[in-house]
Design a protein around this nucleic acid. Structure first.
Lengths: 188, 188
DNA sequence: ACAGTATGTCAACCGTCGATGACTAACAAC
DNA sequence: GTTGTTAGTCATCGACGGTTGACATACTGT
């Protein structure tokens, strides 16, 4: 009568919704992603999203705060941190997942309901882990400055698209970013 | 019958709406500011906003692109550019209007309808003027890198609130920002 | 004073969105 | 097979947002 009826599997549906939500929120801001959008991408009725996660806000929160571990590029330790960050932003190498996590936060940074969650996630998953890695005075301030540099690079990409830098300068460009990151966490 | 009836003055109303819109958009993103919000703040009926500016999108566009002149801190020339930017971000000194302009752009950067306008405004009012100020190779790339640093600082403030750096480090902090800006526009 | 227009107000339309509750169908246990 | 529970669907509610058109009022010229 109603519909072909979806395969019944709670766990799979749950993760499908989470994956779909993640995908949506990396492309659009909290306000612009509708519960129905997520549902369609997950191949699920919209009502299920609310059923499983309570509300859109709860879903977003779970997406941001569930992974208790810090971002991978930080977890790898202090050595070569600047290099990893530079590679990540220039998109040469690994840990695209970390970029997505930051993208989700930044896209929704100025949504009234998402703002608090974003701040919390940013502090817990980025600033504090980085601060713990740093030696010397004022680690929190320096961690935040490094965050600021990364944020700038990613938001610039959001606004203006990829950095179209041609091959000859590629290396120098990446080196410049690495220097910026390194400078941002130097002791004052 | 209807209402006390507002003073009839088209030009004043127009600018009142623009000012109110500006104020609203510096605090919230394009999606979150309603035409009714702007109207209330301007002391005007919501219908007038559409009447005068056609649509919310047109109003936003006019707000971003009307001032054909570049941001003040750029207009002042190449000398002391890094210093001015650092002062501006740390909020010590002048040209708060420029910060607001950037704030408006960044707040609404990931709104689908506003995105194109923001990109356009960013390029026309920031990148190109800065690129014209720079000597040497790849001025556009370097201008964009400087933009990226500034964006990071402002967005970080949006997300996390003001940089609470206590007096002793204040000078060193500002110097660090100045160095970051200077490094970002150095030749590769 | 009168007519005409510029300005402002009100009410409503239409679409979208998040959320809810009633219903239906699959699966498991017995 | 019967029964009870879980998973999924549907229709709908209430709120809100942008926009529009009909109406009311203030100003201007004659």
């Amino acid at each position: 009568m109603t519909k072909p009826a979806r395969r019944r599997n709670a766990e799979a549906t749950r993760t499908a919704i989470l994956a779909a939500a993640r995908h949506c929120f990396t492309r659009e801001s909290y306000d612009q992603v509708g519960i129905r959008d997520i549902a369609v991408e997950a191949g699920v009725d919209a009502a299920l999203v609310c059923r499983y996660f309570g509300s859109k806000e709860d879903l977003f929160a779970q997406l941001l705060l569930r992974p208790d571990k810090p971002l991978e590029m930080i977890e790898a330790g202090r050595d070569g941190l600047s290099t990893r960050v530079a590679e990540m932003v220039v998109n040469k190498a690994g840990d695209q997942e970390a970029v997505d996590d930051l993208l989700i936060m930044l896209r929704s940074a100025s949504s009234k309901t998402a703002a608090n969650l974003v701040r919390e996630a940013m502090i817990k998953r980025f600033d504090e882990p980085v601060a713990q890695l740093l030696e010397g005075a004022k680690p929190h301030l320096r961690a935040r400055m490094m965050g600021s540099v990364i944020i700038g690079l990613i938001v610039s990409k959001i606004i203006r698209g990829p950095w179209d830098v041609d091959e000859p300068e590629q290396a120098a460009f990446q080196q410049r970013i690495e220097d910026l990151v390194r400078l941002s966490i130097q002791e004052l």
